[in-house]
Write a protein that binds this DNA or RNA. Structure first.
Length: 310
DNA sequence: ATGGACACCTGTGGGC
DNA sequence: TGCCCACAGGTGTCCA
């Protein structure tokens, strides 16, 4: 489900309501949702209870909540969340009806005394929560992202170890276009594979890759190295435009699989030109959008506008 | 380096 | 109604 716009919508909601909240209790209903956690279930719970949530931070599709220090800590810790294909984080008041497929619940008391249940809901269990150590990074941590959301030190200079391999995302103010262009030049792989490579640039998944490629009139298998500098810059500009517009409307929701922290859908599905539009006329040329099987998933494109070149 | 298959999972919808 | 198949916003690993 969730790509950058959906994760950012969740992050922004958490930042508003759980910054400064204290964890009072944790329940784990399915330990498979702790698959990225390196300790045990009881260690996960014991580490969280009593901590204060200091912020809500994101890079690409990873989000994390930096935690207050405890005396025994050797490093700053954070609660990392990855939503996988079907993960949600719902913030409910205590008497709110149960949510199906709830895997983990954090019971919180906000700074103003309001009590919440932060419910990690995940149909397919490809997502997870985990506690991880934060570390300084070579590229200056989440500085660019921090500037965007007003994140304070020390959180702006640290990244969880598990997120260290994730490249800056296109909405990060310190996103390095030149670095990404250099990576394109070295890759013989199709451009869509490269857009989905979270180590080159992060946050893009199947929806926003297909949408960006449709806007740029590029075929998914066009080798990245064959793109001119101008074409690459045009593509990155479309990527940023699509991601920013999707963030502005709360992401893309097709069904029950993506909701914000209040359980509300996003509206970007109304703006889709290619993804999920199989058989509908291309909004540029009228030819039917086609779905190709590709990498064990689907790629949606206009066969007229998006041809392989050379 | 590159691309393909597959594993991890549950749920939904279409065709018969 | 039931059964089977295809398909779903991600990531990681193994193998030619």
């Amino acid at each position: 489900m969730p790509e950058l716009p959906e994760v950012e919508t969740v992050r922004a909601g958490l930042a508003e309501f759980v910054t400064g909240a204290r964890v009072t209790k944790v329940e784990v209903f399915d330990t498979r949702s702790l698959k990225r956690h390196e300790g045990t279930e009881s260690d996960f719970i014991a580490t969280l209870v009593g901590r204060r949530i200091e912020a809500a931070v994101r890079r690409g599709k990873f989000l994390w909540l930096p935690l207050s220090l405890a005396k025994s800590d050797k490093a700053q810790l954070a609660l990392i969340g990855h939503l996988g294909m079907s993960g949600q984080i719902l913030l409910r008041t205590p008497k709110f009806e149960p949510d199906k497929l709830t895997r983990i619940v954090l019971y919180l008391t906000a700074a103003d005394g309001q009590k919440y249940e932060m419910r990690f809901v995940d149909q397919r269990i490809f997502g997870s929560l985990a506690i991880d150590q934060m570390q300084p990074t070579e590229d200056g941590g989440v500085g660019g992202f921090s500037a965007q959301v007003g994140l304070a030190a020390p959180w702006r200079n640290l990244i969880p170890a598990q997120v260290a391999h994730i490249a800056r995302d296109p909405l990060d103010l310190e996103f390095d276009q030149a670095k990404v262009l250099a990576a394109f030049k070295k890759k013989q792989s199709g451009i869509k594979r490269v857009l989905l490579d979270q180590g080159v640039l992060s946050g893009i998944g199947n929806i926003y890759a297909d949408e960006s490629l449709w806007l740029a009139k590029l075929h998914y298998d066009q080798p990245a190295a064959t793109l001119s500098k101008a074409k690459s810059l045009e593509l990155l500009a479309f990527v940023q435009k699509v991601l920013a517009e999707a963030v502005a409307v709360g992401g893309t929701s097709f069904d029950e699989q993506y909701k914000n922290i209040n359980g509300e859908s996003g509206y970007f599905s109304q703006s889709l030109n290619a993804y999920g539009m199989t058989g509908f006329p291309c909004k540029r040329c009228g030819r039917a959008i086609r779905r190709d099987s590709w990498m064990n998933r689907g790629s949606h494109l206009c066969p007229s506008c998006q041809k392989l070149s050379r």
